[in-house]
Design a protein around this nucleic acid. Sequence first.
DNA 1: TTGATTGTTACCGG
DNA 2: TCCGGTAACAATCA
Length: 264
Amino acid sequence: MPEGHTIHRAARDHQRILARQKLIVSSPQGRFSEGASLLNGQICSAVEAFGKHLLYKFNNEYTLHIHLGLFGRIQKQKLPLAEPKSSVRIRLIGKKHLVDIIGPTICEVLGQKGVMALIGRIGPDVLRPDANPDFAFEKISRSKAPIGRLIMDQSVMAGIGNIYRSEILWRQAIHPETPGRAIDRQTFNRIWDDASALLAIGVERNAIITVFDGQLSKKRYGKKFNIFGKASCPKCEGEIRRFEISGRRTFVCNTCQPLMRQLG
DNA sequence: TTGATTGTTACCGG
DNA sequence: TCCGGTAACAATCA
């Protein structure tokens, strides 16, 4: 479920909640990860997203680190309390709302040191104003790996997932198999800027939306994608090729996204 | 029941 | 050493 926008959306939501009410940690019996009992009953003081990682900070210097993986979800509900389903690992309880963290692959408590280490190994996040894209361009321009792999590599740049990958590269007319070293700064900037813009829309709308045809009628978004999962290109009507990069399905229009092995 | 899925990492062989 | 591939883990739905 989650690409970067989902996590930033959750961080924003939860930050808003705890501005008006206390959020207290509770974990259903026996479902805390090791060491996480440090947080039982603690009051959350801040929420922040780094790429696809979600950090809940507490006054006791500890941080709850959540990564939803492929299947994890976050559910916000209004009180009264309902019995959490078996996949709920952490529950944050406020006066009027509760937040359930469901099926995360990472659910651990970090100290200051651990948080620094985590942030250090994540590349610049396209949704964070403090991100430095230079770092991502440096890595990309020195790599012969395909750009389709690099922009989804969270240690190169953070936030983009499998759907945004295909959509961004199609929108920018870049073939996913273009080697990183063939991407010039201008081309990289187009990728970065498009990613920032699209994910920001994703945060606002709580959905992946990459199609903007004329009027922004709010109901016209049944077709959210241009080529992801599609058989033909919406621009040239040509066939969409489907293949894998790093074991994840990728879509490309060979006409609209010509493969450039040379710089240019 | 099977398969597929908006993710990541540990491990192993070349 | 640095890759690329594979398995493993997570939850849900058709």
